[in-house]
């Protein structure tokens, strides 16, 4: 799977996990920050996203600092999945 395909897959998984009903995959900029501005996500969504990585890719992240880095954008999530060899 290419990184673009992985990003597309992650976008769909994020939309489903966070019930972002009105958002289409193309509305999400893979490099835009996930939190704060943009999608308006909060700390509960962060837990849901960590859960998403664990459930779909078997990647468990405990360290809060690493979590913050990974959840910067859809691309940083994709990069981790690739690095862990789970793509």
């Amino acid at each position: 799977m290419t990184q673009d395909e992985l990003i597309e897959q992650l976008k769909n998984q994020i939309i489903a996990a966070l019930s972002l009903e009105d958002i289409k995959p193309e509305d999400i900029d893979p490099d835009a920050p996930l939190f704060g501005e943009g999608l308006g996500l909060d700390s509960i969504d962060a837990i849901e996203l960590i859960l998403l990585l664990e459930k779909n890719y078997g990647i468990k992240i405990e360290d809060p600092r690493q979590r913050k880095e990974v959840l910067t954008s859809v691309r940083t999530m994709a990069e981790l999945v690739e690095k862990e060899g789970k793509a």
């Binding site: 509960i44 849901e48 859960l51």
Partner: peptide, 9 residues
């Protein structure tokens, strides 16, 4: 294991 927190909240 790995429970989504939203319905609990």
């Amino acid at each position: 294991q790995m429970l989504s927190p939203t319905p609990f909240i």
